[in-house]
């Protein structure tokens, strides 16, 4: 359990994303009622940030993930808010269970330092009837963001220097990724995908229901209790890194109860059935997305693998993920290619 009050001990981490110290402070306190009902027209109505442009908060705690979702190279600032006196339950190495009244906040930004521009902030609100996802788009002045239930398209330049039409998802599209068995759920904050340093502080300042000794130090192993940083070539195997990447970028849809459950493809970290993972698995409803290839993954042959073909496309109808991606994640693709390249051929099923 993490106590809400003690989470404040972590709040200093929220300053990590701070840029402008000249920005005036707006005295705010979190509007718990706005979390619980209605659809606030402006992000400021929640009162999460006292310096909106710098994304500084005293009430919401910043966190990062070992392996994050690729979003066209956007810089992502993540915060968790828990109502005063409430507790978070740790659930093994899985998803943290946030109490009703909590909010998860994720701001997407492009540009470095003083040029940083906030594009959108997505909030997940834990209400009595379940989680609700709402997208907010930042104004030119960077003083506030307005509710955009229908989403938006915004021109941005990616860190790779590409000019794209960046897609802010609509409210339904938020749900498409966050749905599991018909209910909206958080995806990111799983114990296994939170940095050990963050967890260690949480354990020291509060009580995560874990001992520091329980934290899985040492190399991350695919399917194990800790997900690696998918980009950490030095410390993690390509197997663990690729599986972490697939879990975070694909498995929110590609799992039982997810939006792509009917494909039979299950790319979750904990999945160990080779067919479910796509190895020598023929496509089901991929249509032209299959690109003339016969299986999702052909061991040793990335160029014969539909997975690679679809990651390597920005054509709607082919591109995967279907939402939240306008550019190819070259580095992610490289890891998946290497993983398939080095994959031993499984024994024939016949």
């Amino acid at each position: 359990m993490i106590r809400g009050g003690i989470l404040l001990g972590l709040a200093s981490l929220a300053l990590a994303g701070a840029v402008s110290h000249s920005e005036a402070r707006t005295p705010v306190s979190v509007n718990d009622l706005a979390i619980m009902e209605g659809m606030p027209k402006k992000l400021s109505e929640f009162g999460f940030f006292y310096r909106p442009r710098s994304q500084e908060s005293l009430s919401a705690v910043a966190y990062e993930l070992n392996t994050p979702l690729y979003s066209d190279g956007a810089d992502k600032l993540r915060f968790a808010y828990v109502p005063h006196g409430e507790t978070i339950q740790a659930n093994g190495d899985g998803l943290l269970e946030f109490p009703v009244g909590s909010a998860l906040i994720k701001t997407f930004a492009f540009g470095e330092g003083g040029d940083r521009r906030l594009i959108e902030t997505r909030v997940l609100l834990h209400r009595a009837e379940g989680w609700v996802a709402l997208p907010y788009v930042w104004n030119e002045e960077q003083t506030d963001a307005r509710l955009a239930v229908a989403g938006a398209r915004i021109p941005v330049m990616t860190p790779a220097g590409e000019n794209i039409s960046y897609r802010v998802p609509n409210k339904n599209q938020c749900k498409q990724c966050h749905v599991k068995d018909g209910e909206v759920t958080p995806i990111g904050p799983k114990v296994r995908n939170l940095p050990l340093s963050w967890l260690a502080i949480a354990i020291r300042t509060g009580d995560l229901g874990l001992d520091t000794a329980d934290l899985p130090f040492g190399p991350a192993v695919a399917g194990g209790r800790r997900m690696p940083d998918w980009n950490d070539i030095e410390h993690s195997s390509v197997d663990a890194r690729a599986r972490a990447y697939l879990d975070v970028n694909c498995a929110h849809c590609h799992q039982p109860g997810g939006m792509a459950s009917n494909s039979g493809l299950d790319l979750r970290w904990e999945q160990d059935d080779s067919h479910a993972l796509g190895i020598r698995k023929p496509p089901v409803a991929a249509g032209r997305g299959a690109g003339g290839l016969l299986v999702s993954i052909e061991p040793g042959a990335p160029d014969k693998s539909i997975l690679v073909h679809r990651m390597n496309s920005v054509d709607p109808g082919v591109a995967m993920p279907e939402l939240g991606k306008s550019t190819i994640d070259a580095e992610g693709l490289a890891v998946i290619r290497q993983w398939i390249e080095e994959m031993p051929a499984p024994p024939s099923a016949q």
């Binding site: 897609r167 599209q173 498409q176 709607p316 109808g317 279907e322 939402l323």
Partner: peptide, 12 residues
């Protein structure tokens, strides 16, 4: 001129 999403209309 569709730029994104996997279908024209999705009903859930």
């Amino acid at each position: 001129t569709q730029e994104g999403a996997g279908e024209g209309l999705l009903v859930t």
